[in-house]
Amino acid sequence: MIRLSPEQTVFVTERHLATLTTLREDGSPHVVPVGFTWDAELGIARITTRESSVKVRNAAAGHGGSRAAICQVDGGRWLTFEGTVSISRDPEEIAEAMRRYARRYRELTPDPRRIVLRLAVDRVMGSDYMVR
């Protein structure tokens, strides 16, 4: 079970964008800006996206064993989640991701092409003053 420090917990609820890194077929990183939400109870980060995105294709292909990383930075504060990425097309999961996204960023318009990338976090790294 991943447990964040109180400082890290606050940091992942503030409005910040992050980057998501997935791996291409040749092993090179594909890095894109994303908004994400943290579900402490399940230990997962959720990213809503469209079915046609490259990040979804990379996750589906399983390059690098479907490993991915999300990194959020604000000045000297940073936090990286690493884990296994999977794709969810479940309507309840999409609705939950949209609810959480609305709390952190803004409301999303419904989109039938929307899916969720789930990052099952197994490693957390962060700036020294945030990690205890």
Rank of each mutant, 00 (worst) to 15 (best):
G126Y: 03
M125C: 02
L117T: 03
K55V: 12
M98K: 12
V56K: 09
M125L: 14
I87E: 02
T80C: 06
G65M: 09
I115Y: 10
R67Y: 05
F81G: 00
R123V: 07
D128P: 00
V56I: 15
A60S: 15
H30C: 04
D90H: 00
D39M: 11
S127G: 12
L42A: 15
T22A: 10
R67E: 05
P112W: 09
A45Q: 11
V85L: 07
E96V: 05
R106S: 10
T21Q: 06
S88M: 03
A95D: 15
R50G: 11
G75H: 14
P33D: 12
L119T: 01
E41M: 10
G126R: 05
L42Q: 11
M130F: 07
A120Q: 15
I94R: 12
E107I: 07
E96G: 03
V56Q: 11
V85S: 00
G27R: 15
G75E: 15
V116P: 08
I44K: 11
W78P: 06
M125T: 09
F81T: 06
R46N: 05
R104Y: 06
V73A: 13
F36S: 04
V34W: 00
G27M: 11
R67V: 02
G62I: 03
Y101D: 06
S28M: 13
R24Q: 13
Q8M: 06
A40M: 10
I44F: 08
D39L: 08
D90T: 04
W38Q: 07
H63M: 07
D128I: 02
G83Y: 01
H30R: 01
